[in-house]
Amino acid sequence: MLAQCQQLLDRHADLFAEIEESASLAIVPRARVAALCRPVPMIVWVREPEGMAARAGEFGGFKALSSDLLLVTNDGTLEAALERDEPLAEIKRQLRAGGMLFMVLRRKDELREHGWEDFLEWLGMPFVGSCR
């Protein structure tokens, strides 16, 4: 999955162009998400000097997570999305359909400073909600 994630990140490099170095997004299966837990494997999309990279990491609960964003995925949804022709569009669709959930671990101004605005806008996150 790391290789597929890397392909996705390379393909959408424009969306992540403004991300500050070491800012990251963690991806964890929903069954493993808790405030605190024993370390379990996760995927991290992290900004490195050459660009965004997909790396393996360990998730010890969102209280201990240093990432800016956490993408929580239902069983099989990430794998299925990465198989698609347009994986990021499928992630966006899954966010609407409830197959995936974004958790925001920083304030809006911090996310903006870390360069996530384009990505979040592309996903339509500022416009989600039943009042919309």
Binding site: A35, F62, K63, L70, L101, F102, M103, V104, L105, R106, R107, K108, L111, L120, M125, P126, V128, G129
Partner: peptide, 13 residues
Amino acid sequence: PSVVPQTLPHFRP
């Protein structure tokens, strides 16, 4: 009631 992160960037931690 519990620390559950926000899902929308507009709101506070």
